[in-house]
């Protein structure tokens, strides 16, 4: 794995030290990351979810997206999921040795602030996406 990917994983491990965190290195120097049992508060019907994403070999220069979560994700008040939350997807997006594809909901939040170059670590991006989800 590239140095930037290793550093990002170390930061994720520190933040989610209490949760199961699995790494699946890719041949190009990146890695798939799968974190289980992340708490999900309101407005979702589920209490926890797994979160999966891919760290490319450009990490941390690139934007980390999309994120994938449990396939049965639903709002507690019965609202339908709407973009950028997309049902009917799979994680990982392509065949990956050792990591069978599983049904998933995809959250495709790109970094929108283009006015300045912000190097946002994958951890910060994940936390900001989780925060955004709970504000839906």
């Amino acid at each position: 794995m590239r140095a930037g990917v290793t550093a990002a994983i170390a930061e994720l491990r520190e933040q989610f030290a209490q949760l199961p965190l699995h790494i699946y290195p890719s041949p190009c120097g990146g890695a798939h990351v799968l974190i289980e049992d992340i708490p999900l508060d309101a407005p979702f019907a589920q209490e926890t979810t797994w979160v999966g994403f891919f760290l490319s070999n450009a990490c941390p220069e690139d934007d980390t997206y999309p994120f994938w979560v449990r396939p049965d994700l639903s709002f507690a008040d019965g609202r339908a999921l709407s973009p950028p939350i997309h049902g009917g997807n799979h994680f990982p997006a392509a065949d990956t040795p050792g990591l069978p594809q599983r049904p998933a909901v995809m959250i495709s939040r790109r970094q929108r602030n283009q006015s300045v170059w912000i190097q946002e670590s994958p951890l910060l991006k994940l936390l900001s996406v989780m925060k955004w989800m709970t504000e839906r």
Partner: peptide, 22 residues
């Protein structure tokens, strides 16, 4: 003139791009 989203797209396989396209 450098897009982090484009950096991302260029750093993943064509198969992955297709799999996460909506």
């Amino acid at each position: 003139a450098v897009s982090q989203a484009r950096l991302r797209d260029e750093s993943i396989s064509q198969e992955m791009r297709a799999g996460q396209r909506y």
